[in-house]
Amino acid sequence: MVRVVIGRIVSSLLVVVSSSVLVFVIMYLLPGDPIDSMVNVAATPPEVIASLRHQLGVDKPLPQQLADYFGKLLRGDLGTSLLTSEPVLPKIAAQLPPTLELAAVSLAIALIVGLALGVLSAIHRNGPIDWIARFVGLLGISMPNFWSGILLLLVFSIRLGWFPAMGSDGWRTLALPSLTLGLIGAGFLVRIVRNSMLEVMSEPYIVMLRAKGLTERAVMYRHALRNALIPAITVIGLLAGDMLAGTVVMETVFARQGIGRMISDAILSKDMPVVQGVILFSAVVYVVINLLVDLSYSWIDPRVRLRHRTADTGGAIR
């Protein structure tokens, strides 16, 4: 068991480093550099631009830039933003809480709505509730998130004035973006929960329980539901990742603070240290979440052993 865990940690580290290198290379290949968004290129002599590039260190060849970056990283230094000269680590630390808040609340909405609708939908199969639930589910997954976000904003903020249109302070600013993301997540969950509920309900042991004279309610909630939830739990990790990725768009639409907006801006202006910092963070989160999911998975369903899964899927994750 210990060996397995150590093995996983090592391979996880390897994955984190490689993804960092991969992003570094992609960013290096990105056309232009941060200077282009800082100066009026037309009115700036090329030698001034050249000296600026030199000062920022973006004129060095790729291997040297890579070596510099990882050398610093080993000493715990994430570097400074090329655009603003701010150190990256505090920048991320400051932007992290609003993003986590949004992702967490969205996930909670997804879970509550998705589970409830999924279960109801399965119990009232083919009834109106089923149809409504499935429609909501499909709607959630078939609209581009920026569009549904703007629609919610126009209705609930501008027309009705119930919630603020922007900002990241207080729960009221969370309402619309988390609803947007949460409903998308719920859309996925409804389908999963419904299907697995229906499957479980046709299992022989459920039929037997019914035959034994248990009330329908007891059969459903005490036995069927518990088993039907397992597939739902396996996707929480995925869903959490999805919610985090969704913040990229939501933070722009609702003018929220957060690392999602920070990294998409940084990619577009080629601010490499910032991009690297956030990717590093996201890779670590990914690895940790998956470890947790696998652990909880074997905890909920004792038949699935960590060792077994590890052997089966090659060590990591899903």
């Binding site: 703007i150 904003l153 501008i158 004035g161 603020p164 922007m166 639409v253 003018a255």
Partner: peptide, 14 residues
């Protein structure tokens, strides 16, 4: 950055 949000923030008094 988003146009609808920026103009909406004035319309909604934010």
């Amino acid at each position: 950055p988003e146009d609808a949000t920026r103009i909406g923030s004035v319309q909604s008094g934010q």
